[in-house]
Structure formats: C-alpha cells, structure tokens
Amino acid sequence: MKKFLPVIAALLLAGTTTLSLAHGDDPKTGKATVVAKEQKEWGIAGDARSVTRTVTLTMDDNMRFSPDKLDFKQGETVRFVIRNKGKLLHELVIGTKKELDEHAAMMVKFPAMQHDEPYMAHVGAGKRGGLIWSFNRAGEFDFACLIAGHYQAGMVGRISVAAASR
C-alpha cells in the first residue's frame, strides 16, 4: 500500500488543479519546475509557450527594485528575469498590498518560514532567477521582497494592468 500512496496523491492532485511548467528553472537541476495553477486576484501562473513579453528586474542591498513600476495589458504573459546584484538573499513576490502586508508580517514572526508559489522567486546573492506570470485580470497590484526587514525598508514596486480593449 505504501508503494501506491505517491501515485494516489499525484492522481488526486492532477484531478483538482491544472499543472504548468511556469515558475522557472529548478536551481539544482536547471530543469523547469512544475507548479499548480491557481487563479489569484493578480493573475495566474503562466507557461513558457505563452510568454508575450520579457521584463528584467534588478534588486540590490539598498532594498530597491529597478524598475519599481511596471505596466502591462490584461492578457499578457510575462517572463520576469530577476537579477540580484546584492550580497543578501532577495525575492520577488507579486500580490495585492493586503496580501503582501499579511505575508510580510508573518515573515517577521517566522523569518525561516519556507514558501514557494508560482508568483514568487527567491534569488541568491549575485544570482539570477525568474518566473512566468499571466496577468489575466486588470487592476493595480504590487510586488515586494518579503525577506524579514526588506519589505519594511521599502523594497516594493507597483504593477498596473490595463483592461483589455474590446
């Protein structure tokens, strides 16, 4: 029975979510990782075949992103190439201000907390990372580094997604 548990778990997962090769490459293997697609207020995980635009972001130990304001159109699937020019671990997390505020508060309480979602990328010092995200909903959203203290130091940015024209 123990031998079949992983198979049963995989079948249950496949029946309840849509999987996508979207989060970027696994840093250990260099191969695309598999993520569960879950609709969020700010969009859904994208896949490499659907990328319509690539945006390069840099982050550094001055606790800033460059650029810190991004504009997209509803329906764009964006590949984020994220470069950490600092000597500290940083991350990019996309969300609403409310979600980011709540998550940042948790990170202060539990700084070693592990999290890995398709709308976030952890990038080591001097390294490069990425993610692919589909902005299928219009609105004003945010991105931030939620490493304890970084968000509080102002490591944030803004995303505007214009509604698709009819």
Rank of each mutant, 00 (worst) to 15 (best):
A9S: 10
A9P: 04
L11C: 12
L12Q: 00
T17W: 11
L19W: 15
L21M: 14
A22W: 06
D25H: 11
D26F: 03
K28A: 10
K28H: 09
T29G: 01
G30H: 09
K31T: 12
V34S: 13
V34A: 15
V35D: 15
V35T: 06
E38I: 12
W42S: 08
W42C: 04
A45K: 05
G46E: 13
A48N: 05
A48K: 15
S50E: 11
V51W: 10
V51M: 11
T54C: 04
T54G: 01
T56K: 12
L57E: 08
T58A: 05
R64F: 07
F65P: 09
S66V: 03
D68I: 00
L70C: 06
K73W: 01
G75F: 10
V81A: 07
K85F: 00
G86T: 03
E91N: 13
E91A: 15
E91C: 12
K97D: 12
K98M: 04
H103E: 12
M107D: 02
P111M: 10
A112M: 14
M113A: 10
M113V: 04
M113E: 04
M113P: 01
D116E: 13
A121I: 15
V123E: 09
V123T: 11
G126V: 03
R128Q: 15
W133K: 02
S134E: 15
S134I: 00
S134Y: 06
F135L: 08
R137L: 07
A138N: 03
L146F: 03
G149W: 03
G149F: 01
H150L: 01
Y151I: 02
A162L: 00
R166P: 06
R166D: 10
